[in-house]
Design a protein around this nucleic acid. Sequence first.
DNA 1: GTATATGCAAAGCATTTGCATTAAA
DNA 2: TTTAATGCAAATGCTTTGCATATAC
Lengths: 140, 140
Amino acid sequence: MVTALADRLAARGWRITPQRRAVLSALEGEHVHLSADQVHAAARGVVPEVSLATVYNTLNELIAMGEISEIRLADGTTRYDPKTGPDHHHLVCGGCGLTFDVAPRGVGGLSLPQGQRHGMAVETVEVVFRGRCPNCSRRD
Amino acid sequence: MVTALADRLAARGWRITPQRRAVLSALEGEHVHLSADQVHAAARGVVPEVSLATVYNTLNELIAMGEISEIRLADGTTRYDPKTGPDHHHLVCGGCGLTFDVAPRGVGGLSLPQGQRHGMAVETVEVVFRGRCPNCSRRD
DNA sequence: GTATATGCAAAGCATTTGCATTAAA
DNA sequence: TTTAATGCAAATGCTTTGCATATAC
């Protein structure tokens, strides 16, 4: 899988380095959304000398290329999300930031009336459900 | 209006200081969502010696009390939102961060099937529409 | 009078950047 | 060979904190 994505990126002019491959594998290996630090830790498992700076650079390039997306949590940190696409929704724990992808019902019925668009062209809609995960509920 | 809110907070044990009153007036006087710096600037118009630290402290207390809410933008900065309530949605410009409150149609129909809740108790739903404001579109 | 809020300046964090070095193509 | 990617460390920007002083109650 990493290979397929790497090839796709190479076709777009990317130089494939061990570091980038490590970052890609970190993103594909996990199911939850990862912080930059977590991506760094995972990438180090493959290529011990990857620097955090390279991880950030790579993540930002992937975002710019539309291959991953970022979610800003309420605590100010960022999570990076391997999946991509126009309609992509989340369930976030307000306690620990744990984040899941979800496919809610009724999204298709959402719309913003012209009168409320303030002259803006609406490009995407994101729905965020917030709550507390079992772990954090227990700690309340 | 500031008085009413101030009274409400006083009833909850808040000490009403000129600085806090200034922060409250800054939040109520504007229609758009403000950054901490913008709140600071506005508050200074009333009480010139308010410090940024006090503005942050006050904003965080207001958040904890549920009187305002915060929105983290894609660029990592935070906007503070005077209005409050369970169903509170936004329209955000991806170019400059300009943010509006909106009341979309179809929100009532949104739901997260049990199977996708990962054991979490869902407390709130937020819908974010993203696009580009007329100014930023012009710059593309 | 007493507990709390303030301002200042310093500390913290996550993220970005400059630059010399290294390596992919 | 040439251009781009890397690592390091320093810089950045927003936000928080410690502490002595001032002030609301």
